[in-house]
Design a protein around this nucleic acid. Sequence first.
DNA 1: TGATTTTTGTACCATATCGCATAAATATGG
DNA 2: CCATATTTATGCGATATGGTACAAAAATCA
Lengths: 207, 207
Amino acid sequence: MVQKKSDAAPKRRGRPRAYDPQAALQRATDSFWKTGYAGTSLDEISAATGMNRPSLYAAFGDKRALYLEALAQYWQLAFSAMREAFAEDLPLKEALTRVYEGALSIYFSGDGRPRGCFVIGTAVIEAVDDLDIRNSLGAGFRTFDTDFETRFRTAIEQGELKRDADPAALALLATATMHTIAIRARAGSPRADLTELARKAVGVICG
Amino acid sequence: MVQKKSDAAPKRRGRPRAYDPQAALQRATDSFWKTGYAGTSLDEISAATGMNRPSLYAAFGDKRALYLEALAQYWQLAFSAMREAFAEDLPLKEALTRVYEGALSIYFSGDGRPRGCFVIGTAVIEAVDDLDIRNSLGAGFRTFDTDFETRFRTAIEQGELKRDADPAALALLATATMHTIAIRARAGSPRADLTELARKAVGVICG
DNA sequence: TGATTTTTGTACCATATCGCATAAATATGG
DNA sequence: CCATATTTATGCGATATGGTACAAAAATCA
């Protein structure tokens, strides 16, 4: 097969980039994560990424486009964290616990004070005025709901839950638990409290 | 008893106020509610309240003080809505349903697009950098948790729930349901969907 | 070496933003 | 009517902000 893309030696023509686009996007995400979309200036992003503003525009477009890219990347992180937790075919309680533990390690990641969930902390506020963000949230939440529901459905089939359990209802509560953890993490709850919260929620959900 | 405060005829000395402080605070709250703390300029608040900036400063202090006052007022609204729902001594399911229905009528109030919960939509994002807001959130969430827990405790005593039910765990799920409704309302979910969500959540919580 | 291409860095522009200084306006008290 | 008290209204000023123009820098290609 002929080589399609050579990642090793791009040999592009002009002056080489002084930054790694993926790393820069992560830094920009961190900036938005801490102070939100409206609360983060391009100067701050510029300082965080080490890129000057013209380079930012060339790489990502304007502030909103950069934010949307950060949001899309975060969703992928969130989805993959959840599916990783479900992939190992653990018993239901362990699987749910692992989902929440994975979420917590995202919410408590980073250098400074715990930032909670990027989506809950920054996108929800902008959703009122921004259709694209609203759609992104709708699709993201639906993904969580249905992933949970799928897991509950197999749990019913495998006898882990009572036959008359409502998988859709349980899925909503599972997502709700994720949401309250995301909120409380940003609001200052200690991680241990949220682990305990997750434990209790899993207990109720699994009957 | 001697009259202490005459609300009717203040007879204050200088030029009278051209605004009603309580109404102005509500307008300011509406502004923050829509675009958040960082996303709302004093010019916008000035336009919304009809007060010019010096009057705003004289009445409420700076932007942050005004926001904190709006937040405190909103908590009172939220608390009283919940306690009103619990005051009527309804059966557990009806009481919970009424709590969520009360929340929904707040989340879907106002002229424009549904704004969800003021706290979730505006305070959570600022909490990372602001100790006062963090404390306000901690206290507010605790109030919800304990109010729910109290209701579940009496439900157990009165035989509405099984004796071995965990009231603290159920309370966390009840608050979580409130949180997910608040988030989804702002993210664009139709009200009917959220009523249905609440119905399902109540079903699981009440066993 | 010199032309070409792409990125970087500095500087700039128009506007927005927060906060306040100051004078005009409107009430009461004597 | 005049002094006093309080609020309103205009506008200033310093800085921040999003976005862009333009020249210098650094690579490849011929």
